[in-house]
Protein backbone atom coordinates (compact mmCIF):
# COMPACT_ATOMS: atom_id res chain seq x y z
CA UNK A 1 0.00 0.00 0.00
CA UNK A 2 2.84 2.39 0.90
CA UNK A 3 4.69 1.53 -2.29
CA UNK A 4 1.54 2.06 -4.30
CA UNK A 5 1.13 5.57 -2.90
CA UNK A 6 4.84 6.28 -3.41
CA UNK A 7 4.55 5.18 -7.01
CA UNK A 8 1.57 7.50 -7.56
CA UNK A 9 3.39 10.45 -6.00
CA UNK A 10 6.11 10.17 -8.68
CA UNK A 11 3.55 11.56 -11.11
CA UNK A 12 2.54 14.34 -8.72
CA UNK A 13 -0.64 12.42 -7.95
CA UNK A 14 -2.33 11.82 -4.64
CA UNK A 15 -4.82 8.99 -4.58
CA UNK A 16 -6.99 8.11 -1.64
CA UNK A 17 -7.74 4.43 -1.19
CA UNK A 18 -9.64 2.90 1.70
CA UNK A 19 -7.06 0.42 3.09
CA UNK A 20 -9.88 -1.86 4.20
CA UNK A 21 -10.87 -2.32 0.58
CA UNK A 22 -7.38 -3.09 -0.70
CA UNK A 23 -6.75 -6.85 -0.62
CA UNK A 24 -3.37 -8.50 -0.98
CA UNK A 25 -2.85 -11.95 -2.45
CA UNK A 26 0.61 -13.29 -3.38
CA UNK A 27 2.02 -9.74 -3.29
CA UNK A 28 -0.62 -8.58 -5.75
CA UNK A 29 -2.96 -5.78 -4.71
CA UNK A 30 -6.63 -5.47 -5.54
CA UNK A 31 -9.19 -2.73 -4.90
CA UNK A 32 -12.58 -4.25 -4.15
CA UNK A 33 -16.07 -3.05 -3.32
CA UNK A 34 -17.66 -3.85 0.07
CA UNK A 35 -19.81 -6.46 -1.66
CA UNK A 36 -16.90 -8.08 -3.41
CA UNK A 37 -14.84 -8.10 -0.22
CA UNK A 38 -17.42 -10.38 1.41
CA UNK A 39 -17.11 -12.85 -1.47
CA UNK A 40 -13.33 -12.74 -1.90
CA UNK A 41 -12.29 -15.60 0.35
CA UNK A 42 -8.63 -16.16 1.26
CA UNK A 43 -7.72 -18.31 -1.71
CA UNK A 44 -8.98 -16.11 -4.56
CA UNK A 45 -6.88 -15.82 -7.72
CA UNK A 46 -7.89 -12.25 -8.54
CA UNK A 47 -10.56 -9.85 -7.28
CA UNK A 48 -11.92 -6.44 -8.20
CA UNK A 49 -9.55 -3.94 -9.73
CA UNK A 50 -5.99 -5.19 -9.96
CA UNK A 51 -3.69 -2.37 -8.81
CA UNK A 52 -0.22 -3.85 -9.16
CA UNK A 53 2.30 -6.23 -7.67
CA UNK A 54 5.52 -6.15 -5.71
CA UNK A 55 8.36 -8.24 -7.09
CA UNK A 56 11.85 -8.20 -5.55
CA UNK A 57 10.82 -5.17 -3.53
CA UNK A 58 9.83 -3.16 -6.62
CA UNK A 59 6.25 -2.04 -7.27
CA UNK A 60 4.88 -2.83 -10.74
CA UNK A 61 1.66 -0.91 -11.45
CA UNK A 62 -1.31 -2.25 -13.35
CA UNK A 63 -2.96 -0.37 -16.18
CA UNK A 64 -5.99 0.06 -13.92
CA UNK A 65 -3.85 2.08 -11.52
CA UNK A 66 -2.37 4.17 -14.33
CA UNK A 67 -5.92 4.90 -15.50
CA UNK A 68 -6.88 5.97 -12.00
CA UNK A 69 -3.96 8.41 -12.06
CA UNK A 70 -4.88 10.09 -15.35
CA UNK A 71 -7.29 12.57 -13.78
CA UNK A 72 -5.14 13.36 -10.75
CA UNK A 73 -1.57 13.20 -12.05
CA UNK A 74 0.35 16.40 -12.76
CA UNK A 75 2.87 14.82 -15.12
CA UNK A 76 1.38 13.82 -18.45
CA UNK A 77 2.32 14.03 -22.09
CA UNK A 78 0.01 13.66 -25.06
CA UNK A 79 1.44 12.02 -28.16
CA UNK A 80 0.44 12.29 -31.80
CA UNK A 81 -0.90 9.20 -33.57
CA UNK A 82 2.41 7.93 -34.93
CA UNK A 83 4.31 8.39 -31.67
CA UNK A 84 1.42 6.76 -29.77
CA UNK A 85 1.58 3.71 -32.03
CA UNK A 86 5.35 3.43 -31.66
CA UNK A 87 5.01 3.80 -27.89
CA UNK A 88 2.61 0.86 -27.57
CA UNK A 89 5.04 -1.14 -29.71
CA UNK A 90 7.54 -0.66 -26.89
CA UNK A 91 9.51 2.25 -28.38
CA UNK A 92 10.73 5.39 -26.63
CA UNK A 93 9.23 8.81 -27.35
CA UNK A 94 10.75 11.32 -29.75
CA UNK A 95 10.39 15.00 -28.85
CA UNK A 96 8.67 15.65 -32.18
CA UNK A 97 5.90 13.17 -31.33
CA UNK A 98 4.75 15.09 -28.25
CA UNK A 99 1.71 17.30 -28.79
CA UNK A 100 1.26 18.63 -25.25
CA UNK A 101 3.06 18.49 -21.93
CA UNK A 102 1.52 18.83 -18.46
CA UNK A 103 3.66 19.11 -15.31
CA UNK A 104 7.29 18.00 -15.16
CA UNK A 105 9.57 18.62 -18.14
CA UNK A 106 12.94 17.94 -16.54
CA UNK A 107 15.23 14.92 -16.77
CA UNK A 108 14.52 12.08 -14.33
CA UNK A 109 10.79 12.73 -13.83
CA UNK A 110 8.15 10.08 -14.50
CA UNK A 111 5.23 10.96 -16.71
CA UNK A 112 2.04 9.30 -17.90
CA UNK A 113 1.83 8.87 -21.65
CA UNK A 114 -1.56 9.50 -23.27
CA UNK A 115 -2.86 9.38 -26.83
CA UNK A 116 -4.75 12.24 -28.46
CA UNK A 117 -8.03 10.87 -27.03
CA UNK A 118 -6.62 11.28 -23.51
CA UNK A 119 -6.39 7.49 -22.99
CA UNK A 120 -3.47 6.22 -20.96
CA UNK A 121 -1.00 4.15 -22.98
CA UNK A 122 1.50 3.65 -20.18
CA UNK A 123 4.25 5.65 -18.56
CA UNK A 124 7.83 6.66 -19.11
CA UNK A 125 10.81 8.42 -17.64
CA UNK A 126 12.06 11.74 -19.04
CA UNK A 127 15.67 11.16 -20.10
CA UNK A 128 16.30 14.54 -21.74
CA UNK A 129 14.61 17.79 -20.82
CA UNK A 130 11.47 18.19 -22.90
CA UNK A 131 12.70 21.74 -23.65
CA UNK A 132 15.99 20.51 -25.08
CA UNK A 133 15.58 21.14 -28.77
CA UNK A 134 18.68 19.14 -29.66
CA UNK A 135 17.40 15.96 -28.03
CA UNK A 136 15.63 13.39 -30.20
CA UNK A 137 14.52 10.66 -27.79
CA UNK A 138 13.21 12.40 -24.67
CA UNK A 139 11.04 9.84 -22.84
CA UNK A 140 12.12 6.30 -22.13
CA UNK A 141 9.29 3.77 -22.32
CA UNK A 142 8.89 2.02 -18.95
CA UNK A 143 5.50 0.35 -19.44
CA UNK A 144 2.97 0.42 -22.26
CA UNK A 145 -0.32 -1.36 -23.04
CA UNK A 146 1.43 -3.53 -25.63
CA UNK A 147 2.54 -5.45 -22.57
CA UNK A 148 -0.79 -7.31 -22.71
CA UNK A 149 0.44 -9.00 -25.90
CA UNK A 150 3.98 -9.55 -24.69
CA UNK A 151 2.99 -11.14 -21.38
CA UNK A 152 0.85 -13.80 -23.08
CA UNK A 153 3.77 -15.02 -25.23
Amino acid sequence: MKQLLLFSSQFGAKIVLNPELVLERSKRYYLVSERLKKLARGNFYAAGLYLGKIKNGVFFPSFNLLNMLVDVAENKVILDKKAAWLFICGRDVFRTGIMRVYGARGKGAFTLVLNDFGECLGFGRIIHSLDDEDARVVIQNVLDVGDFLRREK
Binding site: L31, V32, S33, L36, L39, A40, R41, N43, F44, Y45, A46, A47, G48, L49, Y50, S62, F63, N64, N67, V145, F148, R151, E152
Partner: peptide
Protein backbone atom coordinates in the same frame (compact mmCIF):
# COMPACT_ATOMS: atom_id res chain seq x y z
CA UNK B 1 -4.60 -22.02 -13.25
CA UNK B 2 -2.63 -21.42 -16.44
CA UNK B 3 -5.76 -20.29 -18.27
CA UNK B 4 -6.72 -18.02 -15.38
CA UNK B 5 -3.75 -15.77 -16.21
CA UNK B 6 -5.44 -15.02 -19.55
CA UNK B 7 -8.72 -14.32 -17.74
CA UNK B 8 -7.04 -11.91 -15.30
CA UNK B 9 -5.30 -10.13 -18.20
CA UNK B 10 -8.62 -9.86 -20.00
CA UNK B 11 -10.27 -8.26 -16.95
CA UNK B 12 -7.37 -5.85 -16.47
CA UNK B 13 -7.30 -4.86 -20.15
CA UNK B 14 -11.03 -4.11 -20.09
CA UNK B 15 -10.86 -2.42 -16.65
CA UNK B 16 -13.70 -4.43 -15.09
CA UNK B 17 -13.73 -4.46 -11.31
CA UNK B 18 -16.79 -6.54 -10.36
CA UNK B 19 -15.26 -10.03 -10.66
CA UNK B 20 -13.65 -12.38 -8.17
CA UNK B 21 -11.72 -15.25 -9.73
CA UNK B 22 -11.02 -18.66 -8.20
CA UNK B 23 -8.87 -21.53 -9.40
Amino acid sequence: KKRLAALANHLERCHFSNAVVYN
